[in-house]
Design a protein around this nucleic acid. Structure first.
Lengths: 242, 242
DNA sequence: ACCTGAACACCGTTCAAGT
DNA sequence: ACCTGAACACCGTTCAAGT
């Protein structure tokens, strides 16, 4: 089904996004023992584990059990665990990133493309793990990068500034995901919340007047989803006066 | 020296930054066996390990050896490894965050405060590990948050929008750090670079014209430090028309 | 109250051997 | 070429006991 995902799409380090790996080598004419398990099988099993139990539970041993093999057999199909995670995100991107209708205005195109990437990554919370381990994005995402860079150029930025603009958008997007995920994890492990409230209540209005004034609204305000709002501000700023 | 760091500064979940923990309890009047090791001793040893060998090498066992004790003794002074890491970043913030001269113009104050936090965190690459584990920042950082929120309000934002603006700035900052660290890690483990070059060279100019056009300049462009440039764009955008 | 020793329940990965 | 078994060199943390 997606056995030559890498060769079909090619894969690239966009220097700021998810990633993929080259296929190890072209299949020769049955030179030795026939394989019992395949990369796709491994990936499918890994996806199952991650979806059902979370990334933390994805271990080489458990994965081997899931595919009915031994841990070391996996290393014949995947270089190491890090590559497995990158492959997994690559796979996820290829199957969930659908190219949206693009608006006519280039500025809006930038917003739509960035939002689509953000939504795809926000949908799999473990993506942050991979992002921080290896900042690559599958070639499925290249089209979105193209739309962002092109939109910025169409709005009057030089190509160089457009690349920098794309990177700023990616920083903002990756940061939102990291903070969102960390907040979700904290919520899961309860506590701390009461502590935060306490400290906010104890703020010295003389030293930190704004924070003291906002103390009781801080929690709800920071719980709001403001990704698009901030994204639009960033894009506006990148294009200001041009 | 910094034995009551937590009680001195208090500590707070800013919902988007580094963090600290409450001291376990007030010292009673010698109720039992006198302590052989202290929190500060543990923290100092942890700092030594992290500086010399990296976060990956900071294990409870190695830390115990470094302080001349056993792994389990540590759990009497620290809840678990995660708290240890948060404490470590807290400690780092307290000793490296120096309040800069603030410019008169509130917009510039926002930029200066954000840049100071960014610089402090960029100076300790392992901070990303903690950021993604727990999104707290020590109270040492609260003053900077105050400056950002206040600066935005002074520029005409409502308090609510100022908090959202602060969060956008934090997303952008955290994202830059995450991507920067991932890129550094990738550089350290070499390879991949040639692969990226290859894929960029193979881009289909028909499908992805901008990326194809920028292919050979992509690497140097993305290597440039554009944190401030993007930050200014973001702040400009947040304040646009207000 | 604080510390120790031993143990539990795991990891990712290498190596040498099998088919 | 592909897979297996055993082992290496680790982890964080719990538990029961000591001082």
């Amino acid at each position: 089904m997606y056995e030559n995902l890498a060769s079909e799409f090619g894969v690239v380090d966009t220097c700021a996004m998810m990633g993929g790996m080259p296929q190890p080598s072209a299949p020769r004419k049955t030179p030795g023992r026939p394989p019992r398990i395949s990369r796709e099988e491994i990936l499918a099993a890994a996806r199952r584990i991650v979806d059902e139990a979370g990334v933390d539970r994805l271990t080489m041993r458990r994965l081997a059990m899931e595919v009915g093999s031994t841990p070391m057999a996996l290393y014949h199909h995947v270089r190491d665990k890090e590559e497995l995670l990158v492959l997994l995100l690559d796979d996820h991107a290829a199957r969930t990133l659908r190219r949206p209708e693009l608006p006519a205005h280039p500025r809006e195109r930038v917003v739509v493309a960035a939002t689509a990437i953000h939504a795809a990554l926000a949908a799999c919370p473990w993506s942050v793990e991979v992002l921080t381990a290896d900042d690559l994005l599958s070639t499925s995402a290249l089209w979105f990068v193209e739309q962002i860079v092109d939109g910025l150029v169409e709005c009057g930025l030089s190509p160089d500034r457009a690349v920098h603009g794309y990177r700023a958008i990616w920083y903002y997007t990756a940061g939102e995901l990291v903070v969102r995920t960390a907040a979700a994890r904290r919520r899961a492990s309860d506590d701390r919340v009461t502590y935060r409230e306490q400290v906010f209540a104890d703020l010295d209005p003389g030293e930190l007047p704004r924070l003291a004034q906002l103390a009781d609204r801080w929690a709800p305000l920071t719980a709001e989803d403001t990704y698009q709002e901030g994204l639009r501000a960033l894009v506006d700023g990148l294009l200001a006066g041009r």
